Simulated scan of single mutants.
Amino acid sequence: MTRAVPPAEWAPHSAVWIGFPSHPELWVEDLEPARTEVVAFARAVHAEGRGERVLLVAADDEAATAARAMAGDFAEIVVESFGDIWLRDTAPILLSDGSARDFAFNGWGGKYDLPGDSDIGRRLAEDRQIAVESCDWVLEGGAVDGDGTGLLVTTRQCLLNPNRNPALDQAQIEQRLHDDLGFSQILWLGDGLMHDHTDGHVDNLARFVAPGVLAIPEAADNDPNWLVYQHAAAVAAEMPGIELVRIPSPGRVLRDEEIVPASYMNFYIGNAAVVVPLYGAPNDAAAVAALEKLFPGRDVVGLRADAILTGGGSFHCISQQIPG
């Protein structure tokens, strides 16, 4: 009997949840720019009706009013309290049989304990009348990426970090990934990007773009993560059945003179469009062109994501698709 697994992101979606920046105290001067970038991303995913239904999730009535004013009629506004917009990590993960799994969440290893984040996944699933099962161990959606066949890629830095599931070893986590999400084969990479407060989420490092085809950045000359990319590619190349493709990296991206975890890998694969975060880096256009070759049936749209990145993530981090 074939187990249900999360469909690959390029499989059809009926809708997508997208977090809308809602808390001024978290975003400060970046609140309005981040809202503008989020709505532009949502509009690109909707693709004038050719894409999926967009569910903009606002944490309160003030944010919902702002979202309605900015998005107009193309998006449905969902009001559910949450701590922050990173729904890839806090929303439920849906499987090919239509059910959902909601995992424990501890603020990325205890870093950010915000009201509403621990149960937003169940509430979102119940709001859409999706059958949801709770899983009693910590897992964030951005920590894993699957190709729809039962093959998963993740990083040791995150999934084996003692600040997540200190009582579970690698074999036990592998068993739970199999039991709860149906994964039968796991590619373990090492570390994630420098200064990534998620402890190395894989959706900033490596993404499946087709069954068995894994995209990993090719470092720019000034990239602080060049060794991370080199190691990830070497490990992936050793796994039978994996085909590697390389995407140019943005190189060194600074915010207030600090290196930030900017990555083109945080793209979102929608029904009609692949939306790629851009940072004003020299390789922006080259990254879009590389992804166009991998997704010939979709529009590949590059959009600036500087303000969203101030919160620690980008387009993939703020979204969670609903298959169908």
Score class of each variant (00 low, 15 high):
3 R>T: 11
6 P>Q: 10
8 A>E: 12
13 H>F: 05
14 S>Q: 13
25 E>K: 07
26 L>S: 04
27 W>E: 01
31 L>N: 02
40 A>N: 04
41 F>R: 10
45 V>D: 09
47 A>T: 11
50 R>P: 00
53 R>I: 02
59 A>L: 06
70 M>Q: 09
70 M>F: 01
76 E>M: 05
85 I>C: 00
85 I>T: 01
91 A>W: 07
92 P>F: 07
99 S>W: 03
101 R>G: 01
102 D>I: 05
104 A>M: 07
104 A>W: 09
108 W>A: 13
114 L>A: 01
124 L>N: 03
125 A>Q: 08
127 D>H: 12
128 R>I: 00
146 G>P: 10
151 L>M: 10
161 N>G: 11
163 N>V: 07
168 L>D: 09
173 I>G: 00
182 G>D: 07
183 F>R: 08
200 G>R: 15
202 V>P: 09
209 V>M: 06
211 P>F: 06
213 V>L: 13
222 N>E: 14
227 L>V: 06
228 V>C: 11
231 H>W: 14
236 A>D: 13
242 I>F: 03
243 E>L: 12
244 L>F: 02
249 S>K: 13
258 E>V: 10
266 N>W: 11
266 N>Y: 09
271 N>W: 09
277 P>M: 11
287 A>C: 08
293 K>Q: 15
298 R>F: 06
299 D>R: 15
302 G>P: 08
310 T>N: 03
